[in-house]
Nucleic acid binder design. Structure first.
Lengths: 247, 247
DNA sequence: AAGTGGTCTAGACCACTTG
DNA sequence: AAGTGGTCTAGACCACTTT
């Protein structure tokens, strides 16, 4: 006969709210529907707006909600399955590649990338900017680091920094004999420029996929791909986007 | 000659703080070192504690910091590389498996899992609880759903719910002819029980890996693995934990 | 008992989108 | 101009760990 629940350690309000809202989303809302605004929701549940926001943040992290400043909070569709291994031994720029080349520059790579590229790291590295679009929305950005040694056909003198130059780098890269790949996936937060391209705010959670492309001589290229964590489910294997269709 | 920076859109304080702290971590702190407490840091930077906490949350999300209630905020070691594909065609419980079996129960699987298991979903499903330990710390928990049809040798009558029963299920599962796997990775937030096992608070960010194990007849089992997103970097391929060693 | 991070409040103002 | 979510404040209290 406790007041509400004689729990030894009471559940935080925001966590309980998250559960209540999650259930409400399942039963009372349609995908794309707009929720009441934060001030009204907070009043309705009898909590401060900050507490209500804590619950909404959780649900957004889980891909259940989508919030846009000036617009409102809507019920998010299920996450999109994104194939990260389009062809186990396909290289960037190969036929069927899901990425669009947007630009190219020459610069020194970040320390972590330089370490993976090995001794050539100090020299010129082409950085190809790419973006991956699904259903008309950009879901990922990528920086592809290609040492000059991997693309001997590229003359470093040209100053054109556009997409055409990036495509030329990829074309040269595909002349190499592919030697396999490996990947890692970790959580990150979107840098300012990535956030802008992905239509998110700085600090938004992202899944960072680091891919190493091997050729005979060693590491031919390194790609750092940044996927929106709220809308993407990365898939590995031959199922593509149908993995959860039956649910 | 602007006041501070005549930027059209000023950077949020917490984001700027994140950058400042991040640089300080690189240059002035050692791994494991304890930072000043939040109230002091907030005072030192001239912001409210909530704002300071927003910056710390970002850095924790990125795996740079580790915060523990009652203890303090410490500088986190680099993320651990966790091999998610120990052997491309190895199954749970096979020799060399990195997981420890902790228990087993029989229950109806969640709807999403039931959909992946197909028509047998309504019947009895063994749910094996497992945990993955690295350097003495649990980094992931797993629920492995095995339909009774996949382990005909198991009699559903035994009521023993311990680890021994779980190991028996895995033993039976390995009698099947392995038919491949596929995986997906997405961001989630730790449920209460997972959070407790992983020594985190509810809602902590986690990487959820869903694996389907195929056999001749269809889907033989489904595993839902929950990795600590703050400390883990999931690796796919043959490099293991050495991917970023040189950086 | 003291000190830490975690939760919560009530309010203010800002940036952005839309009518 | 109105309405939305995003940022920020100053304070309070709580849960947890350590001394």
């Amino acid at each position: 006969m406790g007041t509400t629940r004689p729990e030894t350690v009471p559940e935080p309000k925001y966590w309980h709210l998250r559960t209540v809202l999650s259930n409400a989303l399942d039963s009372e809302f349609e995908v794309g529907e707009i929720l009441p605004n934060e001030r009204e929701l907070a009043a309705r549940f009898g909590v401060a707006r900050a507490t209500l926001r804590q619950a909404l943040e959780q649900l957004e992290l889980e891909g259940r909600l989508q919030r846009r400043r000036g617009v409102g909070t809507t019920v998010a569709p299920p996450r999109v399955g994104i194939e990260v291994e389009p062809a186990r031994h396909g290289w960037p720029g190969a036929p069927g590649d899901a990425w669009q080349t947007e630009g190219c520059e020459e610069s020194a790579p970040p320390a972590a990338v330089a370490g993976m590229l090995g001794a050539d790291a100090d020299r010129t590295v082409f950085t190809v900017h790419r973006v991956r679009v699904v259903h008309g929305q950009p879901v990922a950005t990528e920086l592809l680091y290609v040492p000059a040694a991997s693309v001997p056909g590229m003359s470093a003198i040209e100053t054109d920094a556009g997409a055409a130059r990036g495509r030329a780098v990829l074309r040269e890269l595909n002349r190499l004999e592919p030697g396999g790949q490996d990947r890692s996936v970790e959580l990150g937060s979107a840098r300012a420029e990535d956030a802008k391209r992905l239509d998110r705010l700085p600090g938004a959670p992202v899944l960072v996929v680091t891919t190493r492309y091997f050729a005979a001589g060693g590491t031919a290229a390194v790609a750092v791909s940044t996927y929106r964590a709220d809308t993407c489910r990365l898939t590995f294997g031959d199922t593509g986007g149908v993995a959860l269709m039956a649910s």
